[in-house]
Amino acid sequence: MAEQRNCVGCGQVDDHPRDVVALADGSTAYYHHDCHARLDPPCESCAWLVQHKGDLVGHEWRTQIGNVHNALTPEQLAAAHPSEKPVVEQFLNGQGV
C-alpha cells in the first residue's frame, strides 16, 4: 500500500496518487490530480492526467499512471525541462521518478 498523505486542495488523507509541489520555503505540498486540476489557474499537467482518468481512483489510478509512464518513449521523457513535463513524467504516486 502507498503512503497515506493529505491533499492540500480537499484535505482528505488517503493513498491516492498525488502531484507533489515544492514550495518556496522548501516544504512540500501534495494535491490529488483532480484537486490540482481545479485550481485557478489549473495545473496543466494534472488537467492533462484527469482528462485520461475516467472513473479510476486509488490503486487503479496509480496503476494507470504507471502504465502511461511506461508507454512514453525516452524521447518523450526527455522532451521538456522537468518542471514542464506532465505529472506522469515527474511523479508516480507522489514519488520522484
Rank of each mutant, 00 (worst) to 15 (best):
53 K>R: 14
48 W>F: 13
64 Q>D: 05
75 E>L: 10
72 L>G: 05
65 I>Y: 00
20 V>S: 06
34 D>E: 11
55 D>P: 12
27 S>V: 08
19 D>P: 00
47 A>E: 12
21 V>I: 14
53 K>D: 03
51 Q>Y: 04
60 E>N: 13
74 P>F: 09
49 L>F: 06
83 S>H: 11
38 R>F: 04
49 L>G: 00
3 E>W: 02
90 Q>R: 15
46 C>I: 02
18 R>K: 12
60 E>Q: 12
83 S>Q: 12
63 T>C: 08
81 H>P: 08
77 L>P: 01
3 E>H: 02
42 P>F: 11
64 Q>H: 05
12 Q>G: 00
8 V>A: 05
34 D>R: 15
14 D>G: 04
70 N>P: 03
11 G>C: 06
34 D>N: 08
82 P>W: 13
16 H>C: 03
52 H>D: 12
61 W>F: 15
93 N>P: 12
79 A>S: 14
41 P>D: 15
26 G>Y: 13
75 E>W: 14
14 D>K: 05
25 D>A: 09
8 V>L: 06
62 R>C: 01
44 E>C: 07
53 K>H: 08
32 H>L: 03
29 A>E: 11
2 A>T: 03
44 E>A: 14
58 G>S: 13
60 E>K: 11
4 Q>N: 04
23 L>M: 13
92 L>T: 09
87 V>E: 02
78 A>M: 12
5 R>E: 00
86 P>I: 03
10 C>D: 01
37 A>K: 05
31 Y>K: 02
40 D>S: 14
19 D>G: 00
27 S>R: 12
